[in-house]
Amino acid sequence: MESINYQNFRIDAENICVDYNGKVALYDANLRLKPGQICGLVGMNGAGKTTFFNALTGFVNISKGKIRINGESVRSAQKDQTIAYVPQSEGIDSQFPINVWDVVMMGRYGSMNIFRCPRESDIQAVKDAIERVDLNDHLSTPIGNLSGGQRKRTFLARAIAQRASILLLDEPFSGVDIRTEKLISELFIQFKNEGKTILLSTHDMIHVREFCDLVLLINKTVVAYGDTSEVFTPENITTTFGGISPDFLFGPES
């Protein structure tokens, strides 16, 4: 079955603008990602990274432009559980009285009935997801008692349990231990092979070089977008970070 061209894109964002009460957070941003691509979203604090994620998940409305997810609207992507969002550590109340199992089960809520009663398949999906992030020993541990890395893995498991084809990760490597970092990077390779599309924001330039096929540099709008090898240049990075030299960002050896 041959589909028309734009449906080949997992994410197709065209000239999107977002403003909060008249204050522009993002304008004329474009992004096209295919299955199996990993894209790094790089920019300063307040450059619109989280806003970009929010627009893709439908958490904020765009004031202009068009977003297509697998060729369909954001609304139907929500209904189909297409996108999973892995929040940054600061975006979550770590003292919330909830355990690992229940957090991961929340990945299944969208496809359950109104009472959110888990079916056999939901339980299996949650088990598998927890297995993949290596948290079997912590099924009933409250998230407040986890380390930063374990908590990050819990939310990754929630995204896996959701069986989403697009993963949005906000700072997946911030505040995690070496073990978690290794596990996340292994998972990325698996996701890529499974044909999932990944968009991740990061402050760490090394990670961009390591994992990302593509990079999207933003500062309220797209500064540069394309293959990491071509676009991720010192000049572009300097522009993105408002004139700060990449030496300062990478350390002198880069």
Binding site: N54, T57, G58, F59, R75, Q78, K79, D80, Q81, I83, A84, Y85, P87, G91, I92, D93, F96, I98, V103, M106, G107, Y109, G110, S111, I114, F115, R116, R158, Q162
Partner: peptide, 22 residues
């Protein structure tokens, strides 16, 4: 009672709730 799980998710992580169409 009917919406207790949804309300808990809403209090915990409204962004995820929205993302999965709740």
């Amino acid at each position: 009672s009917i919406f207790r799980k949804d309300l808990l998710l809403y209090c915990f992580d409204p962004r995820h709730a929205k993302t999965v169409g709740i």
